[in-house]
Design a protein around this nucleic acid. Structure first.
Lengths: 246, 246
DNA sequence: GTTCTTGACGAACACTGTTCGTTATGCCGT
DNA sequence: ACGGCATAACGAACAGTGTTCGTCAAGAAC
């Protein structure tokens, strides 16, 4: 039995009797993820989730505060399927990369989940478990605590972003066509380096790029400097803190 | 005079006479950016842009294919204000970091632009100019071509993602409160490392984290391995290519 | 049996992107 | 100068959205 935030009293569905599926947060989230898989983020709406559960959109508000909360619950639920390889024969680093690859697969393979992840603040138990595992792997690699903490932030943000980017290409139906066109038609007078680097810019598949980038980042986390408590770089006016921030 | 894609014939506004501002892509994009600044991405719509220009939403379709195209034009236009420090007294690396910081400021300081950037495929002239400048800086640092090319992808993706993340916190009105709450209430039985790393996970402001992460990534680009043309890591089923992919 | 609480959900509100069809304006040819 | 044509402008329509309001009915408590 789940309790909606700031509601001290448990919610009991009046559908405990047969015929209609009893409503609950779990049922709503599961149904929403099914719709996401089928129709992508553009096809996900409270009305469609309600219709799938044979109810009205307003009924969902008994269990959810709003659409943002549904998104957060969906993301956390989906992260349950991220897999950590169990084999101890792999190095900590290879297991870390495999874990991050699994994380990317979960985000990428469910239509729209990666985009949802980039606009959703998730802090549920499965998200915490992702952080726990990442910290464990970095600890196993003898990474200093401060670097591990900020490294987790960097790694998860990067993997989420690249999953979303790839998803955007897929959803657009033209892959990198538009960028390719821009590069191929770029003026050598205006963009000499872009034209000179054209082949390199277009080379490699997404997997190769990810693998390389993760090596770059992990190497940096392992061998780079410790985070400073503060920095002298000029800063924009905003609050501290970032999403998925462990 | 701008020509809409696949339209060989120039569009001439019937508003060339006084009283109403003549419509054009540039005018539409400028107006849209003003609305974005004021109301954020949730407050941006074709109807509101049309209303600001004293016309109907349907009129905009003479100049734009759809909302996605408006987003792409807005992003490209906004990138015009990204600044490269001119001083040659700074090292290539410091100028690179300052340039990336300017890029982040542009995305972060306009409400919703960072989120828009993450869901928009931009390949306009100003985007190409960003790539040109980044490649120039990396070349000045004697970074091999292949690493420079893929490094530009990594750097722009990461900076866009962190700008969006910070924007999400700002728009939510509670900053990292939700993540903080999750960390502070995490069970030590379930998440021993998360609890142990709690202080490190919450430490540092956004600027310090960005500065550290950029050092990690730039160090990696400079000293890391060359990209491989292909990789043995298991790959998900998707096309090659990523957004903002030079 | 009556009263009270509250889950369920339709209606309403205010909005969205996009297409269709019509009108009026400006350009071009005669 | 006039008529014809192309098309910019834009309202109407369509199909949809998130969220709140108000009502009803079922179940619990007394």
């Amino acid at each position: 039995m789940y309790m909606k935030k700031e509601s001290a009293r448990p919610i009991i569905s009046r559908r405990s009797r047969p015929a209609k599926t009893p409503l609950s947060r779990d049922v709503i989230v599961s149904s929403a993820l099914e719709i996401l898989d089928r129709d992508g983020l553009a096809g996900l709406s409270l009305r469609r989730v309600a219709a799938a559960l044979d109810t009205g959109a307003a009924s969902l508000y008994v269990y959810l505060t709003n659409l943002d909360e549904l998104h957060a619950l969906m993301l956390d639920e989906a992260l349950a399927t991220v897999q950590l390889p169990k084999s101890r024969r792999l190095s900590w680093r290879d297991r870390l990369k495999a874990f991050l690859l699994s994380y990317l697969h979960v985000l990428y393979n469910r239509r729209g989940l990666a985009q949802l992840a980039l606009s959703t603040i998730s802090s549920g138990p499965r998200t915490l478990l992702i952080w726990e595992r990442l910290l464990g792997l970095l600890k196993e690699g003898d990474v200093e605590d401060a670097k591990a903490a900020w490294g987790v932030d960097l790694l998860t943000l990067y993997v989420t972003a690249i999953a979303a980017e790839k998803s955007n290409w897929r959803e657009s139906g033209e892959g990198p066509g538009r960028v390719k066109d821009a590069l191929l038609s770029a003026s050598v007078e205006e963009f000499p380096l872009v034209v000179a680097f054209r082949e390199a810019l277009l080379s490699g598949d997404a997997e190769a790029r990810l693998d390389w980038a993760l090596d770059i980042i992990i190497d940096g986390i392992v061998g780079g400097r410790l985070p400073a408590a503060s920095s002298a770089v000029p800063r924009p006016t905003q609050r501290r803190g970032t999403r998925s921030k462990p």
